[in-house]
Write a protein that binds this DNA or RNA. Sequence first.
DNA 1: TGCCTTTGCGTTTACGTTAACGCAAAAGCG
DNA 2: CGCTTTTGCGTTAACGTAAACGCAAAGGCA
Lengths: 343, 343
Amino acid sequence: MATIKDVARLAGVSIGTVDRIIHNRGRFASGTARRVKQAIQDLDYTPDIRARNLSLSRKCRIAVLMPSGEQDSGYWQLPLGGMKRALAELASSHVSADFFHFDRYNAETYRAAFARMSESEYDGYIVAPLLAAETEKMFEDIYQNKPVVFFDTDIKSAPRYSFIGQNSKDAGRLAAKLTNLMTRGCKKRIVAVTPDAENEHLLYRLDGFTEKAELPVTIFRLPAEGKALKNRLEELKGLIREEVCAVYVTDSSAHVIAELLEREKLSDRVNLLGFDMVPDNVSYLQKGVIDFILTQRPVDQGVLSIQTLYKKVIIGTDSEDEQFLPIDIITLENMKTFADGRF
Amino acid sequence: MATIKDVARLAGVSIGTVDRIIHNRGRFASGTARRVKQAIQDLDYTPDIRARNLSLSRKCRIAVLMPSGEQDSGYWQLPLGGMKRALAELASSHVSADFFHFDRYNAETYRAAFARMSESEYDGYIVAPLLAAETEKMFEDIYQNKPVVFFDTDIKSAPRYSFIGQNSKDAGRLAAKLTNLMTRGCKKRIVAVTPDAENEHLLYRLDGFTEKAELPVTIFRLPAEGKALKNRLEELKGLIREEVCAVYVTDSSAHVIAELLEREKLSDRVNLLGFDMVPDNVSYLQKGVIDFILTQRPVDQGVLSIQTLYKKVIIGTDSEDEQFLPIDIITLENMKTFADGRF
DNA sequence: TGCCTTTGCGTTTACGTTAACGCAAAAGCG
DNA sequence: CGCTTTTGCGTTAACGTAAACGCAAAGGCA
C-alpha cells in the first residue's frame, strides 16, 4: 500500500504539498498539482483511515431523539438495542451518543426533548420523527451543517441526510398474502385492527393489506388504553366470535388481541397476524396464538443509523438517501433463529 | 477519553512502563504494576485502536477456499459478493483476501486449491469445507497459530476458530410448516427432491421437513446433470402429474423443478418451495411458479466471515464459536425488499 | 535599487500506541 | 570493595496523515 511519502517522492515534492493538493487547501502551482495527481493515480494511493482519524483526532458525538423504550409494547427497545450494540463496537473509534426520549402521544414532551437536545451541539443526529407537523421546521437549522438521519418514519418535506426504515405498503401486501394462505376455504371476514391515532405508515400497512386480501376486510380502530380500549375490545369480541376467520393487527400490539383470543378459546379457529418481535408478541407466537409476525429489522435499523453517521462523520463516505430493510416473516419455526436479540 | 499519557501521569511513571505492564512484557516492579492498573481503572482507559493499529501497522491477509461462483446454480456468488463488499469497506484498514476456488464435486480440485493456498502464509482463513473427509486433517497445522473460519458447512471434528452458517434442521421444519399451509385440504403427497450427492446439511433439511410435514413425503434423489438427470426428471413428471400437491427442493435447484412445472402447466396445481435466491429461482418466484424460497442470508455469511477475521486479527476480539444466521422466508410480496443484493 | 507582498513549497509538530534501546541503581559475587 | 549482572524504568523513533508555520524566491511598486 502506497503512502503519502511515496506519492511525494514520485512527484518530486514534499508531503506537505501533496497534502495541500489532496485537500485543495493553501497554495500550489497548477503544474505541481498535475504531477501529484498523476503520482496518486500511478501508485493507486488511498489515505490510511486510521492515520487520518488519529491525526484529526475526530470524534463523533451523536444525539438520538426517539420515544422511550417502553412505548408501543416495548417496540422502541429494539432499535435502541441496535444502537447500543453499534455504539459499543465503535466506542474505541470515539463514537458516542446521548439519548433524548419523549412520549410519542404527547407533542409537548417531543418539543421538550428537542429543546434539551439543542443545548449542546452534536456531530450528527438520529431522529424518529413521529410528529410530522412538529418536525418539519425543527431540523432546518441543524441540517445546514450537520447530518440528520430519520428512522422508522420518513418525512419527505423535512430536510434530512438519509432515511432508514421500511416499505410499509409492501408489508401490508405480504400480510395479506399470508392471511389468504391461512384462511383458504374460510367464508367469513378478516378484521384489520389499527390504532386510533393517525400514523402514516400504519395507513400504508392497511392499504397494502386491503389491496391484496381475498376476503372482505373490516377495519377496526382501537384506542391506546384505558376504559375506551376495554369497551372496544368487548365489541371486537362479539365481532370475532361471529364472523371472522383472521385478525390482522397493523402495529406491535397483536398480543392484546392474542390475549383476547386465548381467553375466549378462539385461537384455534381464528388466525392472527401482527408486527414486531416485542416480548409479548414473541410469547404468543410461541404458544401458537399468533401465527405470523412481520418485522422490518428494528435492531438493524438502530445499527444502521449509528453506522450511517459514523461513515459520514468519521470516514467521510456518503450513504443512500433511503435505506430500506427487508421485511421478514417470522413464525414458530424460525423464531428462535431471530431470537437472540441480534436481529 | 483518557490516553496512556494520562494513566502514566496518574500512576507517576512513564508511558513505557504503562505499556509494558499492559502487555505484560519486559520487567516491572509489582508495586508499580498495581498502581498502574489502579490508574487504568480509575480513568477507565482503553487503548485507541486506531493508534494501536497504526503503530503495529497490522495487516490482515485472508485466504478464502470455496467452490467457484457458478456452481450450485450460482449460489456461491452470494457469499462471494458479501465477502467482496466487506473487503471493499475494510480496504483502507489493510484487509485483503486471495480467493482459491475448487469444483465441489471433484475432490482433486479441492486438494489442488488447498495446495496453491498453502504456498503463501495468511493471517486468517475462510473455508467452505464441503468435502468433510478431506478437510479433517488439512487445517490442523494451520489452526495451530492462525484463525480458521468455516462457513456454510460445519465439521465438528476438524479444528476451527468459528463457524458461520445455518441451522438446517430448523429450515426443514419451517419448510414443512409453509408446505402444510399451502396444501391444506389436499389429499395427495409431497415430493421432497434432493441431490444425489451426500451432504450433511441437506440431510438435516430433509429430516426437519419429514418431521413436521402433515402429508406423506416421497423422497426423490436427483443427479446433478446429464442424461441421468433427464431420465429422472421424466420419472418425476409422471409422479407429480398423478398424486402430488407440493414439491420441496432441499437445495438451490428449485428452478429445475419450476421449469418442469411450467412446461407441463402444473404450476397452478402444485406448490413449490426451495432454497436460496439464485437468479433462476428469483425469476420463477416472480412468475409465481415457486411459492416460497427460504434463505440463510448467504451474503451476510460472506460479510460475517470477513468481519470475524478482521475482528480477530486487527482488533483482537474473539467471536462466538458458532454464528447462526436467521432463516428468511421469501415470497413474491417481500422479494423485492431483499433483491438489491445487500441481503 | 530597495522594500514589501505574494506565491509555492518544505519543515515540523501532533495524534496515541508500540517496542526497541539504553541508562542508572540495586543486587550478586569473588 | 570493586566488578559484573540484573532489575526497573525513562526516552525515543516509528506508524501515516493533517495542518500550522515560516522560509525563500519571485513579482510588484516607487
